[in-house]
């Protein structure tokens, strides 16, 4: 036989838990990589920058959900080739941006810092990323790649 205070605690916990779950579900965020950052064909010794408005080459990650979101980029310092070659790349304080709507303005973000963005529940927003590749004059020909990770979390978690 359960005592009244136990039933009360049980009910309160259920209320808090279910409410929190509902809130968490309401603020669920979907992170969907859409396009890699592609510097394209480069010549040794010639740097190349992918701008944020370069729709064909910039990196794109879609964010769906609502509420505030903390975004952190894990950025490589170089692209690597299967043969072990290294091609330096760099990112500036305005190499990333948040695109709120298709064709709209891009709000610059610093990809080197944790940034807070506000999602809109009625549309998908896009994180976009540019950068600069700096092949050395002695850079060997070949295909160079690296992975860029975006970590998103809700503030306070």
């Amino acid at each position: 036989m359960r005592r009244p205070w136990q039933r009360g605690v049980l009910a309160a916990l259920l209320l808090v838990w279910s409410g929190t779950v509902a809130a968490a579900r309401a603020q669920a965020v979907t992170v969907s990589p859409e396009q890699g950052l592609s510097f394209g064909l480069l010549l040794p010794g010639t740097s190349e920058t992918v701008a944020l408005d370069d729709v064909a080459r910039r990196g794109v990650i879609a964010l769906a959900g609502s509420g505030s979101l903390d975004v952190a980029f894990v950025l490589p310092s170089a692209l690597l080739s299967p043969e072990g070659g290294s091609l330096p790349i760099s990112f500036s304080a305005v190499s990333a941006g948040l695109l709120s709507s298709a064709g709209g303005a891009t709000a610059p973000l610093n990809p080197q810092q944790l940034v807070r963005v506000q999602l809109a529940s009625d549309r998908v927003m896009h994180l976009v990323l540019g950068g600069t590749a700096q092949p050395a004059a002695s850079q060997r020909s070949g295909h160079y790649t690296a992975r860029i990770v975006v970590i998103v979390s809700q503030p306070g978690t």
């Binding site: 480069l42 070949g142 978690t157």
Partner: peptide, 19 residues
């Protein structure tokens, strides 16, 4: 609760071809 609040990650590739 902590599971529901976990951080999410997304990964894109960066690439270049040296001519």
């Amino acid at each position: 609760l902590p599971c529901l609040a976990q951080a999410q990650t997304g990964t894109i590739n960066a690439s270049a071809d040296i001519a």
